[in-house]
């Protein structure tokens, strides 16, 4: 395995609000190598988007406290001066967002917006930048790119807009592309095309891809490694096959068991995770998932679990015994119910 391109260490982001301090991201670590794809999964409010924005300094403000390190090219993005970080944005690390319509400026032609991105980091002439923009639109699969260069965002379809966003993000050949819910606003057939495109670009350009999503299906199809976030923390991290085959965290179990599938029996009821995520302002001590966890033990409400290896490749933040969790999931995966799993996991205690 090569050395990490981007390595996030113990990143925390706190917002000062009128209601109190929101701990949006709370000690998150991950790293990514060139050409790999990392999926960050979580529900709304889990801190997955804030983390991505913070790497680019887009959450910096007087009300924000950012701690930890994010090493990129030997330098720490968190400690970096604004101007130096600006030069990395779009050049070293680029980002695309959920809603491609609102993410493109409504008053400027798509081509001009791409040209602007190119010229933000190079001395390219208007003509050269325009030629490059044309090439990029072709690269991301926009038909008749020459005509599309002079069109406005509202003249594009949803999928085409996201392609244009990707073209813009690629304009300075970034080493890392952070895609924040890139297909959530799109139709399923278009989503498939955009995911294919991202996958193709990652392979062809050797980019590292960080894909932030709530959709386990999207992660399964695009990521090499997955980090599951809950209430500002990573609760589980593993290679994608491992995570889906042998998850070790009850929250991941909950997610996997609550989604309807295209295969298997549809007579079984879905198993929702009861309750809802905790407040990010006043968090009770112990495991953040404790209140929603069917297997919660007394110590879960006292001690905070830390992300630690639970097998050769998987790391999990859970205080329950590892072997118990392993057998409990085997039971659940084989169609067993929560009670049986509870007995397996907690029966010994």
């Amino acid at each position: 395995m090569s050395t990490p391109l981007l390595s996030v260490e113990d990143l925390s982001v706190q917002f000062d609000t009128e209601d109190g301090v929101v701990r949006a991201v709370d000690g998150v670590s991950w790293s990514i190598e060139p050409g790999r794809a990392l999926g960050i999964v979580g529900e709304s409010g889990s801190g997955k988007t804030v983390g991505g924005l913070t790497l680019l300094g887009l959450t910096r403000s007087n009300n924000t406290t950012i701690a930890g390190r994010a090493m990129f090219g030997g330098e720490d993005l968190v400690a970096m001066q604004d101007e130096q970080l600006r030069q990395i944005r779009g050049k070293g690390i680029a980002m695309i967002f959920q809603d491609p319509l609102s993410s493109l400026h409504p008053f400027y032609r798509v081509g001009d917006q791409i040209v602007e991105a190119i010229q933000a980091h190079s001395e390219a002439s208007d003509k050269a930048a325009r030629a490059r923009a044309l090439e990029l639109l072709g690269l991301v699969g926009i038909p008749d790119p020459r005509a599309r260069l002079d069109a406005y965002p509202h003249e594009f379809s949803g999928g085409m807009r996201q392609r244009a966003m990707i073209a813009m993000a690629l304009s300075n050949e970034p080493k890392v592309l952070i895609a924040d819910e890139p297909t959530t606003a799109l139709d399923v057939t278009v989503q498939a095309q955009i995911l294919d495109l991202l996958d193709r670009l990652r392979r062809e350009l050797g980019m590292a891809l960080v894909i932030i999503t709530h959709d386990l299906g999207v992660v399964a199809e695009t990521a090499d490694d997955v980090a599951v976030m809950y209430a500002g923390r990573i609760v589980e991290k593993a290679p994608v096959e491992e995570l889906f085959a042998r998850p070790m965290h009850p929250y991941t179990w909950g997610l996997l068991r609550s989604i309807p599938r295209l295969t298997g029996s549809r007579e079984e009821p879905l198993l929702p995770i009861p309750g809802r995520p905790p407040s990010m302002i006043s968090r009770p001590p112990g495991c953040a998932f404790a209140d929603r966890c069917a297997y919660v033990a007394d110590e879960c409400r006292v001690a905070e679990p830390i992300l630690s290896p639970a097998g050769t490749t998987i790391a999990s933040a859970c205080l329950l015994p590892e072997t118990g969790r392993r057998s409990a999931w085997s039971g659940l995966a084989a169609g067993g119910d929560t009670d049986a799993a509870f007995k397996v996991l907690r029966g010994g205690k």
Binding site: L58, R86, K91, A94, S102, M165
Partner: peptide
């Protein structure tokens, strides 16, 4: 606070622009 301002910053444009 709009998304396209976030995009403009993410492109690496100077704050003045």
């Amino acid at each position: 606070g709009e998304d396209y301002i976030r995009t403009a910053r993410a492109k690496g444009l100077p704050e003045r622009t």
